[in-house]
């Protein structure tokens, strides 16, 4: 039994993702990027591709610092559709007042899972000279949410909350960012702060990831949280090159480049999906991994195919 379960305060209102994790199922989550506009139909269309194929859907929070429909509103639309969201929340755009306020609002709208992130730096987005907030960092956000939930108070003052949010608290993990030797310890900090589930940066080099997981297990971290491995299907050779060169913490093995390069015209995407499925199979056999998180950017409609090919269907009903 996960050590975390022994002291978890998860109540009857806990969500599907938490229940599945706790029952030992291999969970499947996917990602949905909100639209650059106010049209709920776009959200519904993207979500319809994922409904029934995944256990929960991550809603990104102005990812790459580009303004989009808010993650709270998008997540609430998913709740309305009967799809369980994992609401991502970045500390780039909100101080601790806004963060706590948004969490109370999200909980009122039926959102049960929150992924705490610092967020992509504002200079990468479409408002590069806006003021980044960073009043708190992701680990501090995790800690604030745990205090709100478990102690029912606002952390800075100890003032009682009239209706504390029952949340499944998550955080991200970047196993391959520098300094690599420190990464398991930083993960431990996130767990110590209160993170119950972890979604990792995209994994391509499974061998390196398994070595990382060995170190994570040596620290006993996998006993205290649910680690969900992140995967992202490569759509093309160009995408693989871009990721390798521009995204920190992404290591793509040389053999994948060869596979993508040798795929017949227009078929690189299929090859990318095959690679993705192979990675998922290996992750399923990695000790300490509780599930996978599929980040198919603007490729949500290919997610069912990936899940199906990996033999992860049907998803359990809980």
């Amino acid at each position: 039994m996960k050590e975390y379960m022994k002291h978890s305060t998860a109540g009857e209102n806990s969500g599907k993702l938490q229940r599945l994790c706790r029952s030992g199922d291999f969970v499947v989550t996917a990602e949905l990027g909100p639209p650059k506009g106010n049209n709920p139909l776009i959200v519904e269309k993207k979500a319809s591709y994922l409904a029934g194929f995944v256990d929960a859907v991550n809603v990104t929070d102005n990812q790459t610092a580009i303004v989009r429909m808010s993650s709270i509103a998008t997540a609430a639309l998913l709740v309305r559709m009967g799809i369980e969201p994992v609401m991502q929340m970045v500390t780039r755009d909100r101080n601790r007042i806004a963060a706590q306020s948004d969490i109370l609002g999200a909980a009122a709208l039926g959102i049960k899972n929150v992924l705490c992130l610092s967020g992509d730096h504002q200079m990468f987005g479409n408002h590069p000279f806006c003021k980044g907030v960073y009043d708190i960092d992701s680990i501090q956000l995790v800690s604030i949410l745990r205090t709100m939930r478990d102690e029912g108070v606002f952390p800075d003052t100890g003032e009682k909350i009239d209706g504390a949010p029952d949340l499944f608290i998550g955080a991200a993990d970047a196993p391959f960012s520098d300094p690599v030797e420190y990464r398991p310890y930083r993960l431990r900090k996130k767990i110590d702060a209160g993170a119950q589930f972890i979604q990792t940066q995209c994994i391509y080099d499974v061998k390196a990831f398994r070595e990382y997981m060995r170190r994570v297990r040596d620290l006993g971290i996998h006993e205290k949280c649910f680690i969900i491995g992140g995967v992202m299907p490569l759509k093309s050779l160009a995408m693989a090159r871009y990721m390798q060169q521009n995204v920190p913490g992404i290591v793509i093995p040389e053999s994948f480049f060869r596979c993508l390069a040798s795929a017949p015209g227009g078929k690189a995407g299929d090859e990318g999906i095959k690679i993705c499925c192979d990675i998922i199979s290996e992750l399923r056999e990695t000790d300490g991994i509780s599930g996978i998180h599929v980040m198919a950017v603007e490729w949500e409609h290919r997610v069912p195919e990936i899940i199906d090919k990996c033999g992860l269907l049907p998803r359990p009903l809980v």
């Binding site: 730096h121 991200a172 960012s177 520098d178 300094p179 420190y182 930083r186 913490g249």
Partner: peptide, 9 residues
């Protein structure tokens, strides 16, 4: 941030 480094290193 106060509990770095983030994933961007």
């Amino acid at each position: 941030i106060f509990n770095g480094p983030c994933g961007g290193s």
